[in-house]
Every structure is written in C-alpha cells, then in structure tokens.
Design a binder for these strands. Structure first.
Lengths: 204, 204
DNA sequence: TAAAGAACCGACTTTCTGGTCTGATAACGC
DNA sequence: GCGTTATCAGACCAGAAAGTCGGTTCTTTA
C-alpha cells in the first residue's frame, strides 16, 4: 500500500477503536495495551502517530466525535423551519440509533464531559466546545422559529436549549441501566408535551 | 475513647472523606493512599475495617449516599400535597445547595451511575436501587396529585418522573462546566413552564 | 496488673500502565 | 541497486495502585 495511505488508515483504525473502548470502559480505565491488543498493533506504532494518550484522545474528540455530533445533532436542525418538530425528530432518531447501534454520539459527548470534568482541563475544553456548538445551534434555530411564528418571542431560547440538552444527556444516562425502549418512548412523549405547551402553529 | 465508638468514628471518617474524593476525582482516579493521606491513616487501618476498595465504595453508597439522597430528594416530597410545587421546591433547594456546598447528592448519584456503568455491575446495582427509590417516590407523589386534583389523570406519571430525573441529572452535568447560577435560574424557569402546562389548580 | 484482643502502622509484593528506545522491514527516490 | 525514511515491533523502565503481613500500641477485662 502507498505510504501516506497506510499511515492514515492506521491512525483511523486506532481512533475508531479508541473511541469505542474509551466509551465502553472509560478513558482512565482503558489502557493503551487494551486498544493495541484489539488492533494487533504495538506501542511503537502508537507512539509513532501520537505524542501521548492525551494527544490521542484530543485527536479522537476533534476528528471523530465532533463530526459525528455535527452530522447527527446539528446538521439536521441547521437552517430548517419549525424548530420544535425538527429538534424532536432529531432527538428521536438519535435515541433510536442508540438502541440498535449502542453508541450515539450525543451521549458519548455527555459521558466524556462528566468523566473529564475536573480531571483534565485540556480535554474538557474541547468537549465543551462541541457542546457549545450544539447549544448555539439550538438557540439559533429557536430564534429563527420566533421570526417564523412558531413560538412566541417571550420564551427564553437559551433556557429552552439548555433544558433540551440536559434532558437528553440525562435520559441517555438513565437508558443505559434500564428499559431503554420504554424510556425512549416516554421521553419523547414528555418532550412533545413540553414543546407543545410553547408551540404557536399547532402542528402537533 | 471506647473501642466500638472509636472504630465507628474511624469508619465514618473514612467514608466521608472517601465520598468527597471519589466525587471530586472519580472512583478509579482516586487511590486509597489519597484518602488515607488526607486522614493521616494507614493501609492497615483501612484493610482492618474494609475488605477491599469495592467493599468500601458499597458501604459509602449504602450508608452515606442513600441517606443523603433520601433526606434531600425523597423525604421533602413524600406524602405532601401539590406535587409540582413540592418537586419544584425540592429541586430548587438541591440546586441551591449545590452552588454553595459544591456537592448535592442527587448529582453525585447520577455521576457515579455513569462512572460505574458497564465497569462494575455490583456497585451499579446499588446505585440503581437508590435511583429506583427516587423514581417510585416521584411517581407515587404524582399519582396522589391526580387524586387530589392537581393534574389530570391522562398524564403519564412514570414518563413525567423519568423526565424530571433526566433533566435534573443533565442540568447538573452542564452546571459543572459552565455558568452554574445562570443555568440554575434558566432550568427552574423551564421546569416551571413544563409543570405549568400540566397543572390544574393554577397555583403558578 | 497482666493477658487478650481490637485498632492501627508501614514496609513489601505484585500487577498494571504510560512512555522510551533500539532495531527491523518495507516502500520510496535516485 | 542502494541509501534513506516512513512505519511498525517489542523489550524495557519508572512509577503508581491494590492488597498483604508481621509487628506495635492502646483498651478492655479477668
């Protein structure tokens, strides 16, 4: 294989497997050997491509996590009309994906945020940045919704956005240790009620 | 000091400091030496009172955590009237406490749940039990609220309870890495809106 | 007051983990 | 063909962490 291609393939493999294991067992509870063993690679290979375990994690956050969060939680909302319906669909498909795929990136984000909080300022910053992008996107969408007549101007867009994010992080945390599909159903019902109570054009 | 008293005092000291450090730095990221150093105690003392680090953690969960969660999140709701107002006050004071006291036990519970999930089934079970007690209490309170005419019977009590818990876990996770007091204010506003949309006797 | 045992000390062992370093090997330019 | 370099293998190291164990000190009790 061509050199630069092989290099990129190796890096990619490491990042994908790294994210998978870090998510499953936690960053601090997963050793480099765990990852390298699963890939049948060596320490030499790892430290050729990355400077440290921290550097490795940051590359995962920036390349994999950010893109996944963007495509699953941000892009489907960006620029669209009817924010409530739009956000609702977005959350629904993210939760559905989580049930079959066992890994939805919104939750991975929340999970990592709580793991690194107070333990690694550097990594926390990158995670918070992603979170911020999501938040800004939600707020923008809601503001546009006001202009387009989907909700009244007196509602607090930032408050709603935070509430949506919080409830999503939280329900995913509950889902891992319980009846996931039932929780997902009940959650969607409640978020719909919540949205409905603020919605002007009653498309519900 | 009397022996059995001294013994219990030592155990208590270890548990309190252990909970504090486990919460701050995470269980897997806190060594026994960290705890023992802070208390000026030795390994010998620790393994005299506890069988292992896991056993130690379980004793903390059962004795400290459970009681604190009970007194701060369950007792204030149990048997009372007007569930929405009651739950609202309860969450508010928990969040307020979190801002000054830096440690509210509802969040500690959620935090630990995510840390141990998939990593220690044993400890996870104990944490889930506490969570379940909270949930049952919320559901019971809401059911009673229906009888007392505070909300209509068609609302799904389990769904509402899960939604409350999820939003609370989530907002606390967001608070650690952001503007806590602003988030708290916005959160309480949103949860009030949510409650209001289901409330019959409009005490709001 | 002296034996018994509870409570504790701290050095030691074992295992694991992040990180380093010396080579090996295959692709690449010339 | 030949030196160069990118890519990787794996032995090795230092430090940390959980857990062990023989010994010490203090309290109770007979």
């Amino acid at each position: 294989m061509e050199k630069s291609l092989k290099s990129r393939a190796t890096v990619q493999k490491m990042q994908v497997k790294g994210l998978e294991l870090f998510y499953q067992k936690g960053y601090y509870n997963t050793s480099l050997d765990d990852i390298l063993k699963a890939l049948e690679l060596s320490k030499g290979a790892f430290y050729y491509h990355f400077q440290s375990k921290e550097d490795f994690m940051i590359s995962i956050v920036q390349h994999l996590l950010f893109r996944k969060v963007y495509s699953s939680l941000i892009e489907p909302i960006e620029g669209r009309e009817d924010p409530f319906r739009c956000i609702e669909n977005c959350l629904e498909s993210a939760l559905e994906n989580a049930e079959h795929n066992f890994m939805d990136y919104g939750f991975v984000l929340g999970n990592f945020m709580s793991e690194f909080n107070g333990r690694n300022e550097n990594i926390s910053r990158y995670l918070n940045d992603i979170c911020k992008v999501w938040e800004v996107n939600l707020v923008t969408s809601l503001q546009k919704g006001k202009s387009d007549g989907y909700l009244e101007r007196h509602w607090d867009s930032e408050g709603i956005a935070s509430f949506i994010m919080a409830s999503y992080f939280g329900i995913r945390a509950l889902m891992v240790s319980g009846n996931a599909s039932m929780l997902r159903y009940k959650y969607m019902q409640q978020i719909r009620n919540y949205f409905k109570s603020m919605s002007l054009k009653s498309s519900f």
